[in-house]
């Protein structure tokens, strides 16, 4: 089994209204050093596979096709455990 973490984040320069609202809220709460907040998605996937390379390729394809929208988002795949 292979476990992977996939981080989907908005590309640089793409407006993040959620992040801005959270950032303002943190400032209102008194956290003065908050420069910027960007909100993304964290996806965990467990694959029935024992080949990290093939799994990596498959995860890349899944991310590109469905998990992230390449127009506005970047993704990063992290294979955390193979048992």
């Amino acid at each position: 089994m292979i476990r992977a973490n996939i981080y989907v984040t908005l590309k640089k320069g793409v407006l993040d209204p959620q992040g801005e609202a959270v950032s303002r809220s943190l400032q209102v709460m008194g956290y003065q050093g908050v420069q910027e907040v960007r909100i993304g998605k964290f996806i965990q996937i467990v694959l029935d596979s024992d080949d990290p390379e093939a799994a990596g390729r498959q995860l890349e394809e899944m991310s590109d096709k469905l998990l992230a929208n390449p127009v506005i988002e970047d993704f990063r795949i992290e294979i955390v455990a193979g048992e």
Binding site: V14, L15, D16, P17, V71, I72
Partner: peptide, 11 residues
């Protein structure tokens, strides 16, 4: 069609 949708500016 080209492009993508983001949350409304006002949330």
């Amino acid at each position: 069609l080209p492009g993508a949708m983001l949350r409304n500016r006002s949330l």
